[in-house]
Amino acid sequence: MKNSKYIKGTVCEIAEDTYSRKFGSNVKRFEILHYTNDNKKATIIGDLTNLVSLPQNTIDCFILTQTLNFIYDFRLAIKGVHYMLKNEGVVLATVVGISQISRYDMDRWGDYYRFTDLSIKKAFQEVFGEGNVEVEIYGNVLATTAFLQGIAAEELTKEELFYKDKDYQIIITIKEMIYFLC
């Protein structure tokens, strides 16, 4: 993984710790944030949109994959991530660009947004500041068509799958660092 060097110290993920265990090195503590206490693996029960429910300044790396699409007040959730990060902490996030509705999520808590690289970058810059946010897109018309038709990624060549067309953004990645000036 391209950003695995950032997955160290105290690492937090939503609902599970799959990526931090797979790609992390020098991880001192694995934290799992979950909205309710029905997740037995959760070490933090909290709501990214409710700062009072979150620990402040405790996370070195926050891995936030495919979550913001399902939070109505996603801007406040970004502030929640910022609130949890330590000085020099980093968030590694992904959001959906082009996708069908996730019926599982829609029926449980909602499926609200599809983002573009511009919209998510501006939203993160509002909290983390300009110059601290890196955004990258993945997708193209063939990969989008295959995805929407349920064609497996293995049925495409790497060249077909990884060709990037900024007009067909399936997945958008975000990386930002938090720096406090003392």
Results as ranks from 00 to 15, higher is better:
Ser4Asp: 14
Ile44Asp: 01
Leu33Asp: 06
Ile98Val: 15
Ile14Trp: 08
Gly97Pro: 13
Glu126Thr: 05
Ile151Leu: 10
Leu85Asp: 00
Leu85Gly: 03
His82Met: 00
Arg75Thr: 07
Tyr83Ile: 06
Tyr179Asp: 05
Gly97Thr: 05
Gln100Ile: 10
Cys12Ile: 04
Lys122Tyr: 11
Leu33Ala: 03
Thr49Met: 02
Gly97Cys: 11
Phe147Arg: 13
Gln169Thr: 02
Ala153Trp: 15
Ile101Val: 15
Lys164Ser: 12
Arg75Trp: 01
Phe128Val: 00
Ala15Asp: 14
Ser25Phe: 09
Tyr83Thr: 02
Thr10Cys: 03
Phe23Gln: 07
His34Cys: 13
Met84Asp: 09
Met1Cys: 12
Leu161Ile: 01
Ala77Asp: 04
Thr157Trp: 05
Ala42Gly: 05
Asp47Ala: 00
Glu159Tyr: 06
Ile172Ala: 07
His34Pro: 01
Asp60Cys: 10
Glu160Asp: 15
Val135Asp: 05
Lys86Asn: 13
Asp38Phe: 02
Ile178Lys: 15
Leu51Gly: 04
Leu64Trp: 15
Asn50Trp: 03
Phe62Tyr: 13
Leu76Thr: 14
Lys86Glu: 08
Tyr168Thr: 04
Ile14Val: 11
Val90Pro: 01
Glu31Tyr: 08
Ala143Val: 11
Leu64Pro: 00
Ser4Leu: 06
Phe124Arg: 02
Tyr168Gln: 09
Leu54Gly: 03
Asp111Gly: 06
Glu136Trp: 06
Cys182Met: 06
Lys166Val: 10
Ile78Leu: 09
Thr36Asn: 12
Glu31Lys: 05
Met177Ile: 11
Leu181Lys: 11
Asp17Phe: 01
Glu136Ile: 02
Gly89Glu: 06
Cys61Ala: 10
Val91Tyr: 00
Tyr72Ala: 12
Asn26His: 11
Val90Ala: 04
Tyr179Val: 13
Phe23Glu: 15
Gly131Pro: 06
Glu16Tyr: 11
Tyr104Ser: 07
Asn50Arg: 11
Pro55Ile: 00
Asn3Lys: 07
Thr145Ser: 15
Asp38His: 09
Gly150Tyr: 05
Thr36Ser: 13
Cys12Tyr: 00
Ile174Cys: 06
Lys40Asn: 07
Gly97Asp: 14
Ile178Phe: 08
Ile172Val: 07
Asn57Lys: 02
Met106Ala: 15
Leu64Ala: 12
Lys166Phe: 07
Thr18Gln: 13
Thr67Trp: 00
Leu181Trp: 08
Val52Cys: 10
Lys28Met: 08
Lys175Met: 14
Ser119Ile: 08
Lys8Arg: 07
Gly139Pro: 09
Glu13Lys: 03
Asn69Gly: 13
Phe128Asp: 01
Ser102Cys: 12
Arg21Gln: 15
Cys61Gln: 08
Gly89Tyr: 06
Phe128Glu: 00
Ile120Pro: 04
Ile170Gly: 08
Pro55Thr: 01
Lys79Pro: 07
Asn87Cys: 05
Ser102Met: 02
Met106Gly: 01
His34Glu: 10
Gln66Ala: 14
Lys175Trp: 07
Thr157Val: 02
Asp73Ser: 08
Val96Trp: 13
Ile151Trp: 03
Asp38Lys: 13
Val141His: 04
Tyr163Glu: 10
Glu160Ile: 06
Phe162Thr: 11
Ile7Asp: 03
Phe180Lys: 13
Ser102Phe: 01
Ile171Cys: 10
